[in-house]
Nucleic acid binder design. Structure first.
Lengths: 224, 224
DNA sequence: TGTACATCAGTGAACGCGCGTTCACTGATGTAC
DNA sequence: TGTACATCAGTGAACGCGCGTTCACTGATGTAC
């Protein structure tokens, strides 16, 4: 979420008031996508009305249809943007962990710690609950949108799997380890933990689950 | 899901055709609740229309309002019935496990095995995804309905917690164990595993996750 | 620098459809005497 | 056993509201010459 704008500013010598590199239309579109995201998480996609979105965005309904072909288009664009930011979130965290330790196991343990901390902070803006939404409301979203979501899940899963294979190679164990299931565990604990933390009103659930899992990973590969 | 009907049959000597002890109205109401459950899981509550439900049930829309005050009433009754069957499902499994072994740890391990097997079988009819639905669509359901759901979660959690405390007492460990987090893990893996298995099209996810967790429990308390 | 045209980012009014809900009515079954 | 009434489990028609979508139009900004 760093400050990114302001790429090429003043070529006309006159230092115009250009604090924002995006056009007016792009800003409106982004605002609509933000509002959609929040509403979908709170109420589901079917209960998210265009009427309501445009009121919050401060434009008219017809203005909405200038930006989006129809409601399905809105869903697709929202999910697309969400998936992108989500993948880059994980990539950043993974890169940081790799940076802090060369060994695959130790960097993975660091990654899990960073992940747990981040999850505790993100409280209500949980990334990933979108996956649950799309999964359980499969008739509200079209095929393209669902595919985007599931690709994201597979993407995450594949990343974890590669990493775990690397670890398994460096740390051979006596008993065989089900690395596939291990890769799934992070995702399962994330999605389930989010549900649970919302239901119980306790934001620390995911973090604690991930830390417990971290201990399991450590013990699995480090049984001296 | 055993055969339950047929309590008091023929008091009038004439052995009337009374294979079903429930009245006609009760049967219709139950059918509506079944259809609602399936539709809510597939599309969410807001996207579940009364029109559609009554068509599938073979009655008219006004017939629906004979059974339910309004749409919220439908949600409440559906969740209520669902929560009841869910609690009794867990209770049955737990009782069976206790029956098979006296020791709290071993019966718990048996319980987890039974639970894992059941989850693999229930495939599409996953109990508990209702929790995710209600949680993520909190504005579609009224307070009463949400409370019912969250009470169910707390109910489950409390049962696991009691059991784990019993185990911790019988099997003291060197390092302190976070039993609260452990109780949450079963729920988190269930809810997250369901999401994941729907997203990946792989029904075995929950079962494998629970079995991995089972191993963790065993190692935690049985480190010789 | 001024004019002509194109694109951007919308507005305002209208549409038809489906949805939840109401209301007066009804045929079948149950119960009282 | 027959009649009177009550309850059960609905029907059929109508309602108003909100929603997604369309369409003709428009003021502001950008670009070409």
């Amino acid at each position: 979420m760093a400050v990114k704008a302001k790429a090429k500013s003043a070529e006309k010598t006159v230092p115009q008031v250009q604090l924002e590199s995006r056009t007016k239309g792009e800003r409106t579109r982004d605002r609509l996508l933000d509002l959609t995201y929040l509403s979908v998480i709170r109420k589901g996609f079917a209960a998210t009305s265009i009427e309501e979105l445009v009121e919050e965005a401060g434009i008219t309904k017809s203005g909405f249809f200038y930006h989006f072909k129809d409601k399905q288009d809105l869903a697709r664009q929202m999910i697309e943007r969400y998936a992108d930011s989500n993948v880059s979130f994980i990539d950043t965290l993974a890169a940081r962990a790799r940076e802090l330790h060369d060994d695959p196991l130790h960097s993975f343990l660091i990654f899990l710690k960073l992940y747990a901390e981040d999850m505790n902070e993100q409280v209500d803006q949980h990334p990933g609950c979108m996956v649950a939404m799309v999964t359980y409301q499969d008739l509200s979203f079209d095929q393209k949108t669902r595919d985007l979501t599931f690709d994201m899940v597979r993407n995450w899963r594949a990343k974890f799997l590669t990493w775990l294979h690397e670890i398994a190679l460096a740390y051979p164990t006596r008993k065989p380890v089900d690395v596939d299931a291990m890769a799934d565990t992070i995702l399962a604990l994330t999605y389930g933990g989010m549900t649970l933390s919302k239901a119980m009103g306790d934001v620390s659930v995911i973090g604690r689950q991930v830390l417990m899992f971290r201990e399991t990973v450590r013990l699995t590969f480090q049984e001296s």
